[in-house]
């Protein structure tokens, strides 16, 4: 049996079995687990070694190769724990969600990014209607195309590409043969990763540092890779 690579045998200790009341409803789970490798067979549990790869061929795991790009991007100032960094780079679609994924970090990051982007718009963008301003803030600019573009999925995808983070994202393509990023889901996944980075910095370092990260890295007009500059191109 070449296909059988791993055979894990777990036996319930006799003493423990004796203690269990006879009225237990669910019997102990199967004691022998066969992990299948090779082509998919319905009903067989697949070996993690076989499918834990990103679309670019990187193996999932807490190693330097996977986390290097994100660490370089964040630098010392916004450094995050390795487990959290790997969670940022993992999408819900990867490995049927059995590994920690970035969905909730992304939700928090998304709300925070929108909030900061709207503040950037009213504080930094030039007003087109001075009468509509309040306290010197460009309220009329909110909802404009320029304002909305800053946080659009396409711009966030371009940002991820510019910062060489696309190869280390762990996700599953809608269809392995699709190459168009909008159809394969790559844009949406990349959008989630940027927001998850913000959410993770916010959760780990607090609001002050997350604000600084957004102002210095994402909404800094002097940085050519920033969202502001990418949205203008």
């Amino acid at each position: 049996m070449n296909s059988i690579r791993k055979l894990i045998t777990t036996q319930v200790p006799l003493a423990q079995r004796a203690l269990r009341p006879s009225s237990s409803i669910i019997s102990q789970s199967r004691s022998v687990v066969y992990l299948h490798k090779g082509p998919r067979v319905r009903g067989l549990v697949r070996d993690e070694e076989d499918y834990m790869y990103s679309p670019s061929g990187k193996k999932y795991g807490l190693n330097q190769e996977n986390l290097q790009s994100l660490k370089e991007f964040l630098g010392k100032e916004y450094e995050l724990p390795d487990e959290l960094s790997l969670q940022i780079l993992t999408h819900k679609s990867f490995a049927h969600g059995i590994k920690p994924f970035n969905e909730k970090l992304s939700i928090l990051g998304s709300h925070f990014l929108k909030n900061r982007a709207s503040l950037y718009t009213i504080h930094k963008q030039e007003s087109k209607d001075v009468d509509a301003d309040i306290n010197g803030l460009s309220i009329s600019q909110l909802g404009s195309l320029t304002s909305r573009n800053i946080t659009s999925s396409e711009i966030l995808y371009a940002f991820i590409k510019k910062n060489n983070l696309t190869d280390v994202i762990f996700w599953k393509k809608r269809d392995a043969l699709l190459t168009d990023p909008s159809k394969s889901g790559e844009i949406k996944v990349s959008d989630g990763v940027v927001k998850a980075i913000i959410g993770a910095i916010l959760s780990h370092h607090g609001k002050v540092k997350a604000e600084k990260f957004i102002d210095d890295v994402l909404l800094n007009s002097s940085n050519e890779k920033s969202l502001v500059n990418l949205s203008q191109n």
């Binding site: 920690p100 916010l202 959760s203 607090g206």
Partner: peptide, 14 residues
């Protein structure tokens, strides 16, 4: 996170 005395708590796996 917006509290001044914020300490990082549990981050859920999903």
């Amino acid at each position: 996170p917006s509290d001044e005395d914020y300490q990082p708590g549990l981050i859920d796996h999903g």
